[in-house]
Amino acid sequence: MTDDALHDHAIDAFIAAANADDPARRATLLSRALTGDVVFWGPLGRGVGRKAVEDFITEVVRGHPSGPTRMVRTTRVDAPGEWARFGWRYEDASGRSLLTGMDVVHVTVEGDIDEIVIFADPPE
Rank of each mutant, 00 (worst) to 15 (best):
residue 92 D to E: 12
residue 48 V to T: 15
residue 42 G to C: 07
residue 117 V to T: 09
residue 108 T to Q: 07
residue 2 T to I: 10
residue 12 D to C: 11
residue 119 F to K: 01
residue 88 W to T: 01
residue 11 I to N: 02
residue 66 S to H: 11
residue 67 G to W: 10
residue 74 T to D: 14
residue 69 T to W: 04
residue 50 R to V: 11
residue 102 M to K: 03
residue 50 R to L: 08
residue 37 D to H: 09
residue 46 R to Q: 14
residue 69 T to N: 07
residue 59 E to P: 00
residue 48 V to S: 11
residue 9 H to F: 08
residue 13 A to C: 13
residue 20 A to K: 05
residue 24 A to D: 10
residue 65 P to H: 10
residue 109 V to C: 12
residue 84 A to M: 07
residue 62 R to D: 06
residue 76 R to P: 11
residue 86 F to A: 04
residue 4 D to H: 14
residue 37 D to E: 14
residue 8 D to R: 13
residue 96 R to S: 15
residue 65 P to T: 11
residue 20 A to D: 03
residue 97 S to H: 14
residue 36 G to A: 15
residue 69 T to S: 04
residue 52 A to W: 01
residue 99 L to R: 14
residue 80 P to T: 08
residue 109 V to W: 09
residue 69 T to A: 03
residue 88 W to C: 03
residue 98 L to K: 08
residue 67 G to C: 09
residue 16 A to V: 01
residue 3 D to M: 13
residue 62 R to I: 06
residue 66 S to L: 08
residue 111 G to S: 09
residue 96 R to C: 04
residue 99 L to I: 09
residue 39 V to N: 05
residue 35 T to H: 06
residue 65 P to I: 07
residue 23 P to V: 02
residue 98 L to E: 04
residue 67 G to Y: 06
residue 101 G to C: 06
residue 56 F to Y: 11
residue 72 V to M: 11
residue 33 A to E: 06
residue 116 I to H: 03
residue 72 V to D: 12
residue 25 R to F: 04
residue 97 S to Q: 14
residue 72 V to K: 13
residue 29 L to V: 06
residue 5 A to T: 15
residue 15 I to W: 03
residue 5 A to Y: 12
residue 76 R to F: 05
residue 31 S to H: 10
residue 79 A to E: 05
residue 76 R to V: 14
residue 45 G to Q: 09
residue 30 L to N: 02
residue 15 I to K: 00
residue 45 G to M: 11
residue 26 R to G: 02
residue 99 L to M: 15
residue 82 E to D: 15
residue 81 G to R: 12
residue 74 T to F: 06
residue 53 V to K: 00
residue 109 V to G: 14
residue 106 H to F: 12
residue 60 V to R: 00
residue 82 E to A: 13
residue 10 A to F: 05
residue 73 R to P: 08
residue 47 G to A: 10
residue 91 E to Y: 07
residue 56 F to M: 00
residue 55 D to K: 02
residue 60 V to F: 04
residue 64 H to Y: 07
residue 104 V to F: 06
residue 8 D to L: 13
residue 109 V to Q: 11
residue 105 V to T: 07
residue 53 V to I: 07
residue 81 G to W: 10
residue 102 M to W: 03
residue 34 L to S: 01
residue 60 V to N: 03
residue 64 H to S: 01
residue 72 V to E: 14
residue 120 A to F: 01
residue 8 D to Y: 05
residue 44 L to Q: 12
residue 77 V to F: 11
residue 56 F to E: 01
residue 37 D to M: 05
residue 25 R to H: 11
residue 77 V to C: 08
residue 58 T to K: 03
residue 67 G to T: 05
residue 101 G to H: 00
residue 42 G to Y: 00
residue 107 V to W: 00
residue 70 R to S: 13
residue 83 W to L: 13
